[in-house]
């Protein structure tokens, strides 16, 4: 609880990056990181859902779950799933192009581990309302950062002459490994992280 809000934000964004450190949200990370524009939009959608998740997790933690702790996983997932459904309908209505681009990964945003992961980590760390909010925004920015970095690299490797055996996912994973190594360099940034 001694962390400053800014420390929480930076910690979630780069030091313990959700994708590269906790392996959360890998489906969109692998699936829609082909183009930078799509990656940015997916990241934005994630920031939005993560923020909503953080708020609803806080409400659940404070008013519902003390009476029924065994419902934790179920209530988190149901609340989050309905939220995501709303976002999905909104995107479908507002931007059919984006809806087509994100394809199968939009329904699967419900099963995006990052969303549930955030709710659980936030609970385990006993964050208050604003701490949770900053944690969510940091995590979302971190996801977006990882997605955009990955997309930028993949746009380059698309034109490169890659050995046949490394085409596709193998290359993506090894790039992700290198990114993750690079992000480990941030570990010394915050003593509390």
């Amino acid at each position: 609880m001694s962390d400053s809000l800014f420390g929480i934000l930076i910690g979630a964004m780069v030091v313990n990056n959700f994708t590269l450190y906790y392996f959360l949200g890998l489906c969109p990370f692998m699936g829609v990181s082909g183009r930078i524009a799509t990656a940015v939009r997916m990241g934005m959608a994630n920031i939005f859902v993560l923020t909503l998740t953080s708020i609803s997790a806080w409400i659940l933690n404070n008013f519902v779950l003390p009476h029924a702790p065994f419902l934790r996983v179920i209530s988190f997932i149901v609340v989050i799933a309905s939220l995501v459904q709303i976002v999905e309908m909104a995107i479908k209505k507002l931007s059919p192009t984006l809806f087509r681009q994100l394809g199968i990964f939009l329904p699967l945003i419900t099963t995006n581990c990052a969303i549930l992961g955030l709710a659980i980590f936030q609970t385990n760390k006993a964050y208050g309302f604003f701490e949770g909010l900053f944690y969510a925004i940091g995590a979302g920015l971190g996801l977006t950062l990882a997605l955009v970095l990955m997309a930028s690299i993949r746009e380059e490797t698309d034109r490169a002459d890659v050995p046949r055996i490394a085409r596709g996912m193998a290359l993506v994973l090894i790039i992700a490994g290198s990114l993750s190594l690079a992000f480990m360099g941030f570990a010394g940034l915050l003593s509390s992280a």
Binding site: L20, Y21, Y22, F23, R164, I165, A166, R167, G168, M169, A170, L171, V172, L173, I174, A176, G177, S178, S180, L181, M184
Partner: peptide, 25 residues
């Protein structure tokens, strides 16, 4: 040490896929 840390997860799966691709091809 890096293999038990997070980057090792990505690298290990990446290398497995390289190996499997090589074998299939």
């Amino acid at each position: 040490l890096v293999m038990v840390l997070p980057p090792g997860g990505f690298l290990a799966l990446g290398f497995w896929l390289l190996g499997l691709n090589w074998w299939t091809q």
